[in-house]
Each structure stands twice: as structure tokens, then as C-alpha cells.
Nucleic acid binder design. Structure first.
Lengths: 241, 241
DNA sequence: CTCTGTGAATATATTCACAGCC
DNA sequence: GGCTGTGAATATATTCACAGAG
């Protein structure tokens, strides 16, 4: 921090939408937001970093540092005002505007996504569903008609969708992604089990069941191995593997 | 590294199942593994760090450092033998044994998970499906009968499942998780949109649609904001930072 | 010469610990 | 006294850049 901070210009510190929010913090904000909304529903109006941190399972110092990147929205000796914090996090995450989401692939997963409640609730609207299977096209899912994949470009154009969700089988995913990008989509959420190749200015995030399971397996195995190691009295290097 | 490295004791460096594989590396191993298996199918037998890194979208130095944590499995001047690396990563991730997975909640998402092919293919077997809805109980999904939630403890016991997947609505998730943990499950994959509270020795990973969308929205918004800033000729300090 | 493996340098993230405000 | 906000200290992760094996 080289800047001396123009203190007390206003009671609340500056908007702080400065691009400098650490990625690790951004990834946690949605978790805080959900917990805070849930608290708000319960009627809690104020909460300390300690208490909020406990409900989301992080350390209180981390939570405070995270929130400090948005501005100074707490009150010393008291805590954070729940509603106000909900608003501020929503604003920073861009949830004060509505994002239009297009889902490609309406199998079991696509159905699950389309019907997912919390989806529409805050900031996101599913504007279209696309599928390549003629048996599925024409069906109505979650109140929306499933349209043919050949409509992709037209649908992106007409809906102004900004976010594309790829819920197709792996073999179709890259082609679908390419078409989404060519049509102007700049944010992609990928459920297909492969790495999508995109230009630098397109952001992809992936949600991947088998990756998560494999990470769990690694730790589960390590637990077992550690147990063994503790029981035998540490042999050379020839692990029981 | 204080150890002088007992060179050339054996051609391949030591097993290196030492617990010290960085978390960030563990999280990428599944991605490498998938790409390598895909390459193996295509008949590629050897690949350089540069080429593999390109297909998975990371830097080659990062990839090499990641792999170096497993041992020295490459050949200088040549690259990595695909099959061998597949085997080594599988071993490190614990995929040489089969993990038994129990899915709780057989809605759209549960269906999608149960039917997910790549699931059984490598290292994981779905051994049971449970649901609270009497209409669903008794159905057969992906070749398995859906059993009542009251069977949870009995099913964990009889199947010896090690991994529990929570695919229930949010309001039921914590209770289900508590029962899984009480029944002896130590790894949980959570699809419900809330933070599960578990004892320290239980590992939870979450897969969360709305979190991912919100992260995308943040960056999408930032992109827009940055555009604006570029168009107005940003006064004060530090453009193009 | 090519490409790995890895120290050293840098960048990011987390944790500590406490000054300062309520 | 209680709790936030934050520098300073530490830990983790990424990137650079090159020695050395093949």
C-alpha cells in the first residue's frame, strides 16, 4: 500500500470495485453471501466475523481480510450488518444485474440444472435450453422449450445470453464451446469431463465430479497409508503399496 | 531440500508417496490423468511437458514441477511415457483400489450422477442409492434399486462405502451428512448449496453451481467495468494497471 | 541438441497479533 | 471490553532460467 488512503472522506470507505480483489477471496464471497442470506432469513441483523467464520468453516482473520477487500463495512466492537453486507457482496459479485444463462445439453444433468431453484433466485436467469437429440427438442423443461442445437447462434443473439453452460457429453463439448464463443459468449461453465480450449479473453470454469472424487480418494488413501505407517514402526522406503 | 538425494540407487526415483504433495498439485493431477488416458487411447505413447501442458491449459514448468512431486518419471530429451505416467498418477491418487460410493438423494442430479459413465470406469463404484421420497424408493436407477433413507446406516455398514455423495435438497443435507459421518463415512462430496459441518477428520468437497456462476459473473462484470474505464479516459492515477 | 528436474526468485494466500475505533 | 481492519510474518504456489541427462 503506497497510497496514504484519503481517510474520512465518507463514513463508508470507497466503493473499492478496484479490480484488485484476490481470486481466492472472490471464490469465497459466494459462500459468505449464501450464509448471510440464510442468516438474514432467520432474522439475524448483525454478526461478528468470528460467528460468520464459524458457520462457513474458515478462520475469522481470513474472513475479515476477505471482507476488507470490499471496503470497510463492519463496525468495531459490534460486527457486520447482515443486510448491508449481503448488498455489498452482491454488488461486488455483479449480482445486482441479471445474467442471462444458456444451457446446452438437456440430459439428466441439464434437467437438474434447469430445475435448480437457487439458479433463478439471485441474479441468473436461464433464457434457453438447447439439445442435439431430436427426441428431446420440443420438450418443455422447467417452463422452457428445448430447442435444436442448430439454433445456437440465433438464440445467443436473440437472448443476449452472456453465460453458456456446457452440459453435453464430452465428445460434443468442444464443438459446442467453439460455437458459443464464436457467437459472442465470454463466460462458460463446463460440466463435461474435459478441458475446453478457448481464447484468452473467454473465462471457463469447470465443475467436475470425477476430479472431486479423485481428490477425495487421494486423501482417503493418505489417511489409510498414514494409519499403516503409524502401526508398523516405519520401515525403509518400501511402503506397503 | 537438505537431503543430498541418494542418486542412482534405482533407475526410477523413489516411490515418493510421501505425504508432501502440495494440495494445488493434487487438484491438477486428475486433469493430467484424464488428458493422458485420452492420449493413450489415441495411440500416443510419449509426450513432452510442453505438449501435455498445452492440452490441459497450464504452463509447462508448472506441469513439470507437479509431476516432479510424484518422482522422476520423465526422460530428458524425450518426454514422458504416457502409459507409465497414467499408472503413476493413478497410483498416487489411490485409483488402483476401488472406492465404494453411496449416493443420497435421487432427484435429477442424483440420476445424472448415478448414470455418469466415467464414474464407474476408473476406481469408483456406486454401491447404493438412497432417497427419502417413497415414490422414488423401489425404483431402479442405473441398475441399482433406490432404498429408503432409513437404511442409511445399514447400507454403509453392509457395503463398506467410503465416500458419500450428498445430492439432497439443502434443507436435508446436514442431517444426511451427520448420519453418514456417524455411520463411519470419512469423505463426503456435497452438491447441496450449503456448507456442511463435519468433524476435523472428515473431508468434504463441494460442487456448487451457483458459486461457479457467481465467480463468472464477477469476472464478466469486471470485464464490462474495465471496458468502461478504457473508454472514458480514466483520470487520476494508474490506467491500464 | 532437446527436454526434464529443480533451485532460486517472485507472486499469492493465510495467519498472527495488535492498534484503533465503538 | 469487544471487535474490526490491517501491517508484518509466514506459508504456499507459480514462474523463471538453467544445469545436466539422454
Amino acid at each position: 500500500m503506497t497510497t496514504p488512503r484519503p481517510q474520512s472522506l465518507d463514513r463508508r470507505a470507497r466503493p473499492a470495485l478496484r479490480q484488485g480483489i484476490p481470486e481466492a477471496t472472490v471464490a469465497r464471497l459466494p459462500v459468505y453471501l449464501r450464509a448471510l442470506m440464510s442468516l438474514a432469513e432467520t432474522g439475524v441483523s448483525t454478526i461478528s466475523s468470528e460467528a460468520l467464520a464459524a458457520t462457513v468453516g474458515v478462520g475469522s482473520a481470513k474472513l475479515r481480510k476477505d471482507l476488507s477487500h470490499l471496503g470497510s463495512y463492519g463496525t468495531r466492537g459490534v460486527g457486520y450488518e447482515v443486510d448491508y453486507l449481503v448488498y455489498q457482496i452482491s454488488r461486488v459479485l455483479g449480482l445486482t444485474q441479471d445474467w442471462r444463462v444458456l444451457i446446452v445439453g438437456v440430459g439428466n444433468l441439464g434437467h437438474a440444472l434447469a430445475n435448480y431453484g437457487g439458479f433463478a433466485s439471485r441474479g441468473f436467469t436461464v433464457v434457453a435450453l438447447l439439445d442435439a437429440d431430436p427426441d428431446v427438442v420440443g420438450e418443455s423443461v422447467a417452463g422452457l422449450p428445448v430447442r435444436g442445437i442448430e439454433m445456437l447462434e440465433a438464440v445467443v443473439e436473440s437472448t443476449g445470453a452472456q453465460i453458456g453452460v456446457v452440459a453435453t457429453p464430452a465428445h460434443a463439448a468442444q464443438a459446442v464451446c467453439d460455437r458459443l464463443v464464436a457467437a459472442g459468449i465470454t463466460s462458460v461453465l463446463n460440466f463435461a469431463p474435459l478441458v475446453l480450449n478457448v481464447p484468452d479473453d473467454v473465462m471457463v470454469r469447470k465443475v467436475d465430479l470425477s476430479t472431486e472424487l479423485q481428490i477425495l480418494a487421494f486423501h482417503e488413501q493418505r489417511r489409510t497409508t498414514a494409519d499403516l505407517a503409524a502401526h508398523e514402526s516405519r520401515p525403509g522406503r518400501g511402503v506397503a503399496g
